[in-house]
Design a protein around this nucleic acid. Sequence first.
DNA 1: GTCTATACCGCGATAGAC
DNA 2: GTCTATCGCGGTATAGAC
Lengths: 226, 226
Amino acid sequence: MEAETANATDAFGIPVIPVIPSSSEAVRRKRRAIADAAAAEFLAEGFAAASMDAITSRAGVSKATVYKHFGTKERLFLAVIAGLLRETCAGHEPRASALAEAADLRAALIALTRDRAVLLLRPDVMALRRLVIGEIDRFPQLGRLWYRVTYDRYDGPLVEACTELARRGQLDVPDPVLAVQQLVAVTAGVPQLVHTFAPGTGRDPAELTRVVTSGVDLFLARYAAS
Amino acid sequence: MEAETANATDAFGIPVIPVIPSSSEAVRRKRRAIADAAAAEFLAEGFAAASMDAITSRAGVSKATVYKHFGTKERLFLAVIAGLLRETCAGHEPRASALAEAADLRAALIALTRDRAVLLLRPDVMALRRLVIGEIDRFPQLGRLWYRVTYDRYDGPLVEACTELARRGQLDVPDPVLAVQQLVAVTAGVPQLVHTFAPGTGRDPAELTRVVTSGVDLFLARYAAS
DNA sequence: GTCTATACCGCGATAGAC
DNA sequence: GTCTATCGCGGTATAGAC
């Protein structure tokens, strides 16, 4: 009844790389080196153009070792990119209470959306986003995972907070889900749209603050309780 | 002084495919067949994974013919994708006057942004967008061209219209460029963000109208003249 | 477990007949 | 101009020694 672990995937269709119980420190370091090298290669070249030879070179291991650990190029790609996705968004979830309990709602919204924009505009995050978007026809799991990681962890708490604020009469929000989408679109979404097609241009903190502030004021002009 | 036409590119870095003066009808049809086949293959597979053999098969010509006309895979890719980009956006520019002269500004904004959203959400346009985003590190020309085609042709007229409306006192817009970016983000940008990571899901016209209308109302709540 | 060496295939690009 | 046939290279994946 031993499961076929070589092709094992989780609920998202992301490969589960079996953890060898007797994992020595050297083995763990090699696996990490492979994952890091693969991440760099895939981010720079995309899936199809990435070379397994280049990955083994960068990692300082032989090709056979890579295939022993990860099976195929597809499995390596999915495991590594999904790992990047998860660790990128970890620790950046906004706490709904921080917004609902805030003394100055406008200031809290600005701080919150600005943090989000800074994260999304980081060059490595933008590169990861471009990679996922470009490969989405071949790896739809990554699209679903991205959606899940960003929307559930980020938009979800915001929707809760908006609902709570609406219940207390501090906001006038008929559709909290749509309102949160609009808030994100009008703050982080604006510079993101520009940077998506022009990598590595003009990331001026002051300009970002101006855009985010304007977006929050736009949001509040409609949704602040009268 | 005859220029080297084999590597010729235009101001954007897009290859200029020399038009043979004595182009017979059969030759023109073959070239079109190659371009169509290449577009389908590149959109489905991306640049690196696309096969020149598959393109020649689809087009019903030999490989030598493709190379005679387009030189290399890179040049074929750039020429074909840039062509798609240009023809996709052709005829969809909003006329600034249509907005400035509108009797009902709100209705005009809704119609305008809804048309834009319908265009951007078309499956073929979304696929093209994903391709350009995914290949932007290797073909930054396409990013610049996309930016130019969409922003100059679309946002530009809107900025003019907003400036005109502000001058007449019908809008209160301190920064027209930012305001237009916000308008687009909060209308077409909202469903686009969702569809980017979940291809081929839920394109309900009524829902789109609801989202766009809400976005326009959000825009007007801040920028309508008091 | 990890290495070296290699099998095997499909790729982009070209030569030369017609 | 267009074809068929082919070249050379680099790809993924594996076999077998240690």
